[in-house]
């Protein structure tokens, strides 16, 4: 019956996404934007999870892959006549090349993956704080370059005239694609090897596992997913470099950690829960009605609530809401499980 258990491992996060999508169909188009945003955040957090969850190593650099994906998909889908007006500094090749929606998403994933691979090639040799700071460096450099380099994008300005193709279908399917890819990776022996290096690097290395290669593989895959998510994002709203930097890094890491960075379910739950709360308070800056009681909050309340929530969850439940476990059917507990349970109490 293991296939049922496996199916649940995939279905639980997938159903959460579908549920969100169904809810989104029921609300006003104004509120729907928040749901779409949430689904894109799910995609980003799942991308983060593929690396951080499996390797146990923090990365502050993933938002740069999101940004690169967004730039790719954005620049390639703005109609040519618009490009000449909004991004006159664009390199000739980019100025004259345009692709369709789906192709732009695929290319976003490809560019994100290639960039992650190139960055990971040297960086995955590092560990500990050095790795953390280096990924931070990647984020800063990417952001810095995207902010000022007008040959590859809008520079300081926000993207304009990117076709808003990320509607309810694209957001839902995009989120599901990320979940399915993450799940599929999780079922491979590569993921199991990487998880072994997370639990005990020395033993894993002694068993012939190359920590470097496994980390690089996961980093590249998660970079590709992040690029893909960036593509979804740019088709949803006019992005600018400033919105793909520290704050997004913080918010998405918060979602992953609060949900529980050890499981796919945790990534999805964290993204849905935190972005739900975040969206609610963001919407409340322009007044919301809850059960006939309407109220308005000052802008910044959403970030404030998120920060507090995250600090509280970290202090009370450092392994996140899901405790890093997948949802599983109740089953007869094996002796090994009992031993484990006893050891942890």
């Amino acid at each position: 019956m293991t296939w049922i258990r496996r199916a649940v491992e995939l279905l639980a996060p997938a159903l959460l996404i579908l549920g969100t999508a169904l809810l989104a169909l029921e609300v006003s188009s104004y509120l729907q934007a928040y749901f779409l945003d949430t689904l894109v955040k799910v995609a980003i957090v799942v991308a983060l999870y593929v690396f951080i969850g499996n390797s146990g190593v923090l990365s502050f650099g993933h938002v740069s892959f999101v940004a690169v994906g967004a730039w790719t998909a954005g620049v390639l889908t703005v109609p040519e006549d618009q490009k000449r007006i909004t991004m006159p500094g664009l390199a000739h090749f980019l100025l004259t090349t345009s692709v369709g929606n789906v192709a732009s998403l695929v290319l976003a994933a490809v560019v994100g993956g290639i960039f992650a691979f190139a960055v990971g090639l040297p960086l995955m040799r590092l560990s500990g704080l050095a790795a953390g700071i280096a990924t931070f460096g990647v984020l800063e450099i990417t952001n810095n370059v995207l902010t000022y380099e007008q040959r590859i994008g809008p520079g300081l300005n926000a993207f304009s005239s990117v076709p808003s193709t990320t509607g309810i279908w694209q957001a839902t399917i995009g989120g599901l694609v990320c979940v399915v890819v993450a799940y599929a990776y999780q079922r491979t022996r590569f993921s199991r090897m990487l998880r072994a290096t997370r639990e005990d690097p020395a033993a894993a290395a002694a068993a012939g596992i190359s920590i470097y290669r496994q980390r690089l593989l996961a980093f590249t895959l998660s970079g590709a997913l992040a690029g893909f998510a960036g593509g979804l994002y740019v088709h949803l709203q006019p992005l600018q470099a400033g919105s793909l930097s520290l704050n997004l890094t913080f918010v998405t890491l918060a979602m992953l950690v609060v949900g529980g960075s050890g499981s796919l379910l945790g990534a999805v739950v964290g993204a849905l829960a935190l972005n739900g709360i975040f969206s609610f308070f963001s919407a409340a800056t322009n007044t919301v009605d809850v059960l006939g009681w309407s109220f308005t909050v000052p802008s910044g309340t959403a970030e404030l609530t998120l920060g507090m929530l995250m600090a509280i969850v970290l202090i009370l439940r450092p392994n996140g809401l899901t405790g890093g476990r997948e949802l599983s059917l109740p089953r007869r507990r094996s002796v090994a499980d009992l031993e484990k349970a006893r050891a942890t109490t």
Binding site: F250, A254, E303, L304, G307, M310, A311, L314
Partner: peptide, 11 residues
């Protein structure tokens, strides 16, 4: 701990 101080910074 690092993510927690991140949270505090953001807050």
């Amino acid at each position: 701990m690092l993510v927690a101080t991140f949270a505090v910074a953001f807050l």
